[in-house]
């Protein structure tokens, strides 16, 4: 048994194609990003080696840390919202009437491209004609805020479409995981007189724990490198109030002609993400996980 399951040729055959692809297309660019970070380069003229200067500057760059804070806030909100997605998935998977239709509806937003979602929410948030303010005014709110223009609100306003956009993604994963639980297990508990809440908490949750942990990592990594909607909807503005690490990096590399510095920021983004992921993996690790 063990001999078959540790056949080196088979392992190589199965894992190498994938490994080769990411080695060439992801790891080489990654190493090059770190390397460009050591250069004074505007992306046009010849580059000049300046050692760690860009990295040192980045660590002292208040704007970078402000954008990092925003990224971390996004990661926090995304992780917390996983609980909501999980609760919804538990309800949907428990065979209530109409759950099939509801599930499909919940998943619709994730089908849209970021361009479409941005156009949509720009109109929802429009201060004078937008859907949101129309509703608020109909409810009697006199002077609803200009969501994307107020520095104190804009960051939270823009989280809403991001969480909205990703709801379907996680519900889809949780739903598939919950449907994977063997029916007899749930049935047996029900016969023993367990309430739906007890079944969810004592049986279903432990069984999808490994999936849940993976989604925590996905949510955090995805949030820390998030770019799309923020760039289109606010461009990181007003004056950096909604800037995140990836949009800051993009602006430096592509708008300010500071490609070397932008690469250094990009590399730091990766390091930060890596550290956070390792911490989260360690914090959520349990004995059962080593079971295999």
């Amino acid at each position: 048994m063990n001999k078959v399951m540790s056949n080196k040729w088979i392992i190589a055959l199965y894992v190498l194609p994938a490994l080769l692809l990411i080695a060439v297309l992801i790891f080489i660019p990654l190493i090059l990003t770190g390397y460009y970070g050591l250069m004074d380069w505007n992306g046009i003229a010849t580059m000049e080696f300046i050692g760690l200067e860009n990295y040192i500057n980045a660590i002292q760059d208040a704007k970078f840390w402000e954008s990092a804070l925003h990224s971390f806030l996004l990661a926090l909100f995304s992780t917390l919202s996983l609980l909501v997605y999980l609760a919804i998935s538990l309800i949907l998977a428990s065979k209530i009437k109409g759950s099939d239709l509801l599930r499909k509806i919940y998943l619709i937003p994730m089908l849209l491209s970021s361009v479409a979602i941005a156009q949509l929410w720009i109109k929802v948030f429009n201060p004078s004609n937008g859907m949101l303010n129309s509703i608020l005014m109909a409810l009697g709110v006199d002077n609803p805020p200009a969501w994307l223009a107020e520095p104190s609100i804009v960051l939270y306003a823009i989280f809403i479409p991001i969480l909205w956009q990703y709801a379907g993604f996680y519900i889809l994963i949780y739903y598939a995981a919950l449907k994977n639980i063997p029916e007899p297990l749930v049935e047996a508990a029900r016969i023993d007189g367990a309430t739906p809440l007890q079944i969810a908490y004592k049986i279903k949750l432990p069984l999808i724990m490994s999936v849940f942990k993976v989604t925590i990592v996905l949510a955090i990594v995805g949030s820390l490198k998030y770019f799309d909607l923020i760039y289109v909807m606010t461009g990181g503005g007003p004056n950096g109030a909604s800037e995140v690490m990836a949009s800051y990096m993009y602006k430096l590399a592509f708008s300010s002609n500071e490609f070397g510095y932008g690469s250094a920021i990009g590399f730091l983004l990766l390091i930060i993400t890596l550290i956070v992921t390792v911490i989260v993996r360690k914090a959520t690790a349990t004995k059962e996980e080593i079971q295999y």
């Binding site: 720009i122 948030f125 429009n126 201060p127 004078s128 004609n129 200009a146 969501w147 994307l148 223009a149 107020e150 804009v154 606010t234 503005g237 007003p238």
Partner: peptide, 21 residues
Amino acid sequence: FVKGFNGLSDEEAKSMFMNEQ
């Protein structure tokens, strides 16, 4: 200036002008 101008794109502002708002 129109409400929320710091969050509006030029295209949106243009639309407001062209729709007589």
